[in-house]
Design a protein around this nucleic acid. Structure first.
Length: 886
RNA sequence: GGGGAUGUAGCUCAGUUGGCUAGAGCGCUUGGCUGGCAGCCAAGAGGUCGUGGGUUCGAGUCCCAUCUUCUCCA
């Protein structure tokens, strides 16, 4: 059974049990500050378990793309070394939200594994939670045990402790016991030697957990206690790659058809056979695994970068490049060629791979090239370090510098050092790394306090599409302390007109004004019935809650408030957002439909739009794009907004959905003429409100990705008036010529001409002066001597001194100049004289400098000194001869 | 967000404790030589030393700010 069939059968099975099948959520998470990537199947349903949202169906099944790069068993550095750990993997899952519970979950899992997938019952083991004697004092999960006992012989039921069989989402929230299904795929011979039961949960590569059924029946409260949930949920997860391994009768995930095509392609491209040598095999597994993670991340809109989630992706890709470089001897980009293999293989299940095949390849290729360059530079630096080493050990500090500053991987450093007979101080290296980590942590520490819950509200209603002002009350708040922003409060309201940051659009700002009670009004009659305004400085979404950020709390948090959005900012933002849609349409119309939105920022000041395209836009194209958008503005297209239409209906109607965005089943579409997009943002009622659209910049941000910045509305007026101002000033400066450009050119020409003339004149002057000075040179004790004040600047004096210095080998020259009332002495002594007589120009200017109240220095044959008192020049010149008199 | 590095000729880079009039290789222009595989020789053009302040007699070099790019950590 091939992997595509395995996946389909899973989904079909649960469809037949009345589950609705949903698409995988994006692997890259955008609106949860606590999580960068989806790391478990339940992530996209978190809000349902927390009670912040209601699922469209209480039975759901899906396959979820997940990414894990850290954690107990999933350190990135371990992936590839064994045959069963991965960065990116698929998690098959079925879910019940307050619907069915243990009985169905257990029966169905058994039915699917043994009847549909036909796994030998004899090789399966199941575990149940044994209870705990700690503060929670939980008893054995008898319900699960009895259910299993009816279908599985007792000797294959295992009791698991809290660590293995009690699942918690975090410190707080829904949790409960779980039942795991393990499978033993060892040979009969091995089985006869050690019973499988003894190997369950013991990290044996062939006795493995394949399915975890979590029964959420408790809520962990902030004080650590457990309470029973009113509604009970089921959350299951089955590792897809492992399942394929079991069903395909192989002993390694990498031997399944999930990975084989990639491995074969790597073998072909790098001429390295798989299965012949352990080091090569590890490298091939690393590359096969990592390219999947990177490709899926890119299709979700996450490009490799040097911060945040993008940095994680970069690290994964670079690890793959490094393994290829070291163990497969690849010195040129090659991983990008796997993008095609991967999209052929998984494109049916994940259409985003097919659609963005070229982009994925381009981005990977670019990253490979740049990292290979980094490696090259690092190699050179390392060679230098080795050459300078005093003994056979390279300090951890030095190695860390290579790693930290130049990005040269530490394991490569260690490898090369050992090859050349040097040792690496690894302890020192890790010390430095720890220091760096501590520094970063200290700089970004955030202390989040518990929520203070004032009123239990079902769900916070967003009313901002219809109004910008609303009467509200606070349902909960908490304090957040960070080094960066200081102390802030997050406030949740029962209903809010404030748009939370999302879909590229920044969060609303505004104020919260308490409405005073009659009693409070009595105390403070001058208030006019309103209390002190609280400024809302930002609005963000977290787990479907809308958080309003303030610097302080209202004095009475239980009051009723008027929540008022800053409409000036909001209106400008709306213009930019609508213009973003028109720009998207324009780009697809002018450049082609390969243009995909790759990122977007919509703020009150400007809009930024990243999109996939392979080349720099020509001036003509930019003008076309601008003209297209402005034509739509002139057409005065009214906003056609549809709320709560089904996702599929929206797509059928022709709405553009974005890869890497998470959409519910019920979506909102925004249409202006022929531009229709799925969007939750704020828009103008008519394109005419945008007034005008102007592109400010266009450039590349990654291979195949370009960024455009533009402005609308009043910002365009300011822009043009500023340009006009500049032009006016230029005109004025040029005395209002008829043709500025012509005037400017002639000015430039003239300037060049004058410069040349000037150079000539200066040369003449210097020659004249030189000639003049030559005649004044005296011979004293066989030394050519001159001390004179001249009318030149510092560089002129220097030039002249060198010129004269070229005349002979026994010159002693002291020149005095005055610039801006500041006297300066320049002394030149031929090198031969310096050597013969032990003269030193530096000493000369320092000593003579005192006459002009100055100081100075230089080299023995040439030195300068500056001072304050130009009246002292004659005396200084007079004394100069003393140096050569003896 | 924090740390480190980086920016010098069209390109790749040197430039010492601040002090020869800022250099090299490649490329470019011109002239000459030559039976090639990076032809050779000679001459030449090309630089706001990222930007803005400061210290100093003197700053590519030191200090402060700022921007670019790279890199590590979060």
């Amino acid at each position: 059974m091939n992997s595509n069939q395995v996946r389909t059968q899973f989904l079909d099975f649960f469809k037949s049990k009345q589950h609705s099948i949903v698409a995988s959520a994006p692997m890259v998470i955008k609106d949860d500050p606590t999580l960068m990537f989806t790391n478990a199947g339940m992530n996209q349903f978190k809000e349902y378990f927390l009670g912040n949202g209601i699922p469209k169906s209480n039975r759901i099944a899906d396959t979820q793309k997940c990414l894990r790069v850290s954690g107990k068993h999933n350190d990135l550095e371990e992936v590839g070394k064994d045959t069963y750990h991965h960065t990116m993997f698929e998690m098959l899952g079925n879910w019940s939200f307050g619907d069915y519970f243990k009985k169905e979950a257990i029966h169905w899992s058994w039915e699917l594994l043994t009847k549909v997938y036909k796994i030998d019952k004899e090789s399966l083991y199941v575990s149940v939670f044994e209870g705990s004697k700690d503060a929670d004092n939980l008893s054995l999960d008898t319900e699960a045990y009895d259910l299993w006992k009816a279908i599985v012989p007792e000797e294959r039921i295992i009791f698991g402790n809290k660590k293995d069989n009690f699942w918690e989402m975090g410190d707080q929230g829904p949790c409960g016991p779980c039942s795991e299904i393990h499978v033993d795929i060892r040979s009969d011979e091995e089985k006869s030697m050690v019973p499988g039961k003894d190997l369950v949960n013991n990290d044996h590569p062939h006795v493995i957990e394949i399915w975890n059924l979590v029964f959420m029946q408790y809520n962990r409260k902030a004080d650590g206690s457990l309470e029973k949930l009113p509604a009970q949920h089921v959350d299951t997860g089955m590792g897809f790659e492992r399942l394929c391994m079991v069903l395909q009768g192989v002993k390694s995930n990498y031997d399944t058809d999930v990975f084989l095509p990639l491995i074969q392609k790597i073998e072909k491209v790098t001429h390295s056979p798989y299965g012949k040598n352990e080091e090569t095999d590890i490298a091939i597994r690393v590359i096969a695994d990592h390219v999947r993670a990177v490709a899926f991340a890119i299709t979700d809109g996450q490009l490799p970068s040097n911060t945040g989630a993008g940095y994680v992706i970069r690290r994964i890709l670079r690890r793959a490049i490094r393994y290829g470089f070291t163990f497969l001897n690849t010195k040129e980009p090659f991983i990008y060629q796997l993008a095609e293999t991967l999209s052929n293989q998984m494109g049916d299940a994940f259409p985003e791979l097919l659609a963005q095949k070229n982009l994925v390849a381009n981005v990977i290729k670019e990253e490979e090239a740049s990292f290979l360059h980094t490696l090259d530079q690092g190699l050179e630096l390392l060679t230098q370090v080795i050459a300078e080493a005093k003994d056979k050990t390279i300090s951890g500090k030095k190695a860390f510098e290579l790693y930290d500053t130049f990005g040269f991987p530490i394991d490569l450093t260690a490898l090369i050092l050992s090859e050349r007979g040097y040792a690496l101080d690894e302890v020192g290296f890790h010390k430095e790394l720890q220091k760096q980590k501590a520094r970063s942590r200290a700089a970004s520490e955030i202390a989040t306090e518990d929520w203070t819950i004032l009123k239990e509200a079902n769900k916070e209603a967003f009313v901002g599409y219809n109004q910008t002002e609303n009467q509200v009350h606070i349902t909960r708040f908490r304090k957040v302390d960070s080094k960066k922003d200081g102390q802030l409060f997050q406030i949740v309201l029962n209903s809010t007109p404030f748009y939370p940051e999302g879909g590229g659009q920044v969060g609303d700002k505004g104020i919260l004004t308490p409405i005073l009670s009659p009693k409070e009004r009595e105390i403070s009659p001058s208030s006019g019935g309103v209390g002190e305004d609280i400024e809302i400085i930002d609005t963000k979404k977290e787990n479907n809650l809308i958080l309003h950020f303030t610097k302080k709390l209202p004095s009475n948090v239980n009051a009723t408030f008027t929540a008022k959005v800053d409409t000036f900012l909001r209106n400008n933002t709306a213009k930019n957002h609508s213009a973003t849609h028109l720009l998207h349409q324009a780009l697809r119309s002018v450049l082609g439909t390969h243009v995909e939105q790759k990122g977007s920022l919509v703020s009150p000041d400007y809009l930024r739009f990243d999109f996939s395209h392979f080349a720099k836009l020509s001036v003509a194209e930019l003008q076309q794009v601008e003209a297209f958008v402005n034509a739509r503005i002139e057409e005065q297209l009214p906003l056609i907004e549809r709320r709560n239409i089904s996702y599929n209906q929206a797509l059928e109607d022709g709405a553009i959905a974005l890869f890497g965005e998470k959409y519910g089943d019920s979506v909102r579409t925004i249409q202006f003429g022929k531009s229709m997009e799925l969007c939750g943002g704020i828009h103008v009622n008519n394109t005419a409100n945008i007034w005008h659209f102007k592109i400010i910049s266009e450039g590349a941000i990654a291979s195949g990705i370009r960024r455009m910045e533009a402005i609308t509305g009043d910002a365009v007026k300011y822009y043009f008036s500023e340009q006009e101002n500049k032009l006016n000033k230029i005109n004025q400066a040029l005395k209002n010529p008829q043709d500025v450009i012509k005037a400017l050119h002639s000015l430039q020409d003239e300037n060049a001409k004058l410069k040349k003339q000037m150079e000539g004149l200066l040369k003449d002057k210097a020659t004249n002066l030189k000639g003049e000075l030559i005649t004044e040179i005296q011979e004293v004790n066989g030394i050519l001597f001159l001390a004179k004040e001249i009318n030149l600047d510092a560089t002129g004096a220097k030039d002249l001194a060198y010129e004269l210095g070229n005349l002979g080998k026994n010159l002693f020259l002291l020149l005095a100049t005055v610039q801006d009332d500041k006297p300066m002495l320049t002394c030149y002594i031929s090198k031969e004289l310096v050597a013969q007589k032990g003269l030193n120009a530096g000493q000369v200017v320092r000593e003579l400098g005192k006459y002009i109240q100055g100081s100075g220095g230089g080299q023995p044959f040439f030195a300068t000194a500056g001072g304050k008192n130009s009246a002292g020049i004659p005396e200084a010149l007079e004394k100069a001869i003393d140096y050569i008199k003896q």
